[in-house]
Amino acid sequence: MDLQIALLLGQDGVTNGAVYALLALALVLVFAVTRVIFIPQGEFVAFGALTLASLQAGKLPGTLWLLLGMGIAVALIEIAISVRDRHLQRIPSIALLNVGVPLVLAGALFVVSPATLPLPVQVVLSLMMVVPLGPMIYRLAFQPIAEASVLVLLIVSVAVHVTLIGLGLFFFGAEGSRTPAFTDMSFEIGDALLQGQTVLVVVASVVLIGALFFFFERTIYGKALRATAMNRTGARLMGISATVAGKLSFTLAALIGAFSGVLISPITTVYYDSGFLIGLKGFVGAIIGGLASYPVAAAGAILVGLLESYSSFWASAFKEVIVFTLIIPVLLWRSLNTRHVEEE
């Protein structure tokens, strides 16, 4: 292995690690606020990428129907609650938000051929279809059992994952897709070629992480989420609704996931079930961060990316064996360092 290979591997590891880091942040956020270990995080990556690919192929993506279906389900539940509590004035806004907006989206896509739209519009449309799934999943699957144990929330999370995988296969088929690069630029470093899209992934990840940092530090919603993460009961007493916090964290997680998918689909092929493994590696990063610290989680995710890259060079058949075995001592070290005496 010469220096150039080492650098290329490092670059590859950082690129993958950047995506894992984004997912790790989303997982930490969701866990801290809702205690849900969000296994379906990866599905948003796949759905984001494949929805965009469908649009570019001139097809109506299946996620649109999923959005409409879930919107109707949410609307029915909320309307039933409104009727029971005699808050009839809320019904129009519920219906408009959950059913009206998806319907308008569907109508627009019927009228305009999506393949002819410019790329940024397609990206925005994809995000509009995938991101609302996040809060809807929270409303349907997690809000009713928000107080259950972490184990039960985890199992529900697995059930959601299984459901989404099945739907993904139905919507997008078993074969994968790629989308065109956002940029055709490339840079020459030595005699190696650095693709513009690769740089874009890293830059976009850093920008997004920065934006999240700003969100948590500076905005009222971000502060509310942090407060909920630190002390659920306390936050509720301060008037921060756990439901709002939960939905907000799921929205952010869905946004991060779908955006990651859009970012990576030009540099790799994405399949309906790609998300699980990507999400799992993000999860490893998140755990290294103790499901609490954002910077450490991001660093952990980059570490996973690098481990993966170098081990795929040295012994590709044993890549997963090496990556996941090396994770164990890291976990041990982290575990011994994050000493938390049980509350007495």
Partner: peptide, 28 residues
């Protein structure tokens, strides 16, 4: 001996890690 020293959420992840390792070991 190793994983049970892991506390909190490190433990389930530890089991995921060696679960995957052993699976790929069987295959390779």
């Amino acid at each position: 001996f190793i994983t049970l020293r892991l506390s909190g959420h490190f433990l389930p992840l530890g089991t995921i890690a060696w679960g995957i390792s052993l699976y790929y070991l069987f295959g390779n």
